[in-house]
Design a protein around this nucleic acid. Structure first.
Lengths: 155, 155
DNA sequence: CTGCCTGCAAACTCTTTGCACGAAT
DNA sequence: ATTCGTGCAAAGAGTTTGCAGGCAG
């Protein structure tokens, strides 16, 4: 999905929900979709402000749920206090994460079997699965061998 | 592993690390191992105080990492602000969680394949896996059908 | 005795919210 | 003109930490 298509989807979602298309919301959208790596709310505040310096932290926090509900962003919780976000380029992405404990870089890996697994185990318990997550925390071999985590540069 | 065996393991771990066996640490241990369901730090404070009312919140928070490092407790992060803990009855437990979104009850399910998965995907990235987690968030069918979440009572 | 442990309360991090002003429809 | 959206700053939740006194070894 191109950024243009995503922007239209965002506007359409806002319209559907009776929400307004504001400059701040658009700036936050642009800031989010300009990112290629996972980002935090705080980073999004900074980037959105470079587009429209009137964007407040509060508005970013109020906009993030809108963008995740509309499936434009995926929320990635890796067990730290803060949440990471990533543009969702595929609506039905079933992805696992491999997280480098040394540099916090997040690698995403397609894991279509997750959905099957969620269905199977939930059904046995009388539950209906909504989301599933599969994460692997790992150490960087390069760091162990050379003292430098090679992922840190690109993170 | 019986509670007695776990208590000895706890004391042995403390000794190994040069940490002292204090009444507070023992009270926190007893409170944790008296629980059959997952519990939070705050719940542990309350229960530990019923054993030794001198136990402070700070000491509970300082003791929890010791108990997780020693594999006596497993830390379960279900993507909320707070963490849950559970006595670890099997040292090498590879468990997935199914979480009822309606009542926050956590079901644990043996998932030995997780370790294999973690190894496989990590190796490809030049990483060494440390931990993995697999979680399914699900809605309660009983709640949907009858308006009452049947798990809430036992949670 | 020595130095780790403790309780207390303040600090911290991330996120949410009340309020009055401002802008989209 | 309405009504929703916004920035600001304070509040909130969970957790961590500095400090002075206390207890295990």
């Amino acid at each position: 999905m191109s950024n243009d298509a995503a922007r239209e989807k965002f506007k359409a979602y806002l319209a559907t929900k009776g929400l307004r298309v504001t400059n701040q919301r658009l700036a936050i959208f642009e800031a989010a979709f300009a990112r290629t790596e996972h980002f935090t709310a705080e980073e999004l505040v900074t980037h959105a402000r470079s587009i429209d310096d009137s964007v407040s932290r509060a508005t970013v926090y109020r906009t993030l749920p809108i963008m995740t509900e509309s499936a434009l962003l995926r929320e990635v919780d890796i067990g730290k206090n803060l949440k990471y976000y990533h543009p969702n380029t595929d609506n039905n992405a079933q992805v696992a994460q491999v997280i480098c404990i040394d540099c916090d870089k997040i690698f995403e890996i397609s894991a279509p079997f997750m959905e099957w697994y969620g269905n199977t185990v939930s059904t046995k318990l009388g539950l209906t699965p909504v989301t599933q997550r599969l994460q692997v925390n790992a150490h960087c071999n390069t760091l162990r061998d050379t003292g430098v985590c090679k992922h840190r540069d690109s993170a």
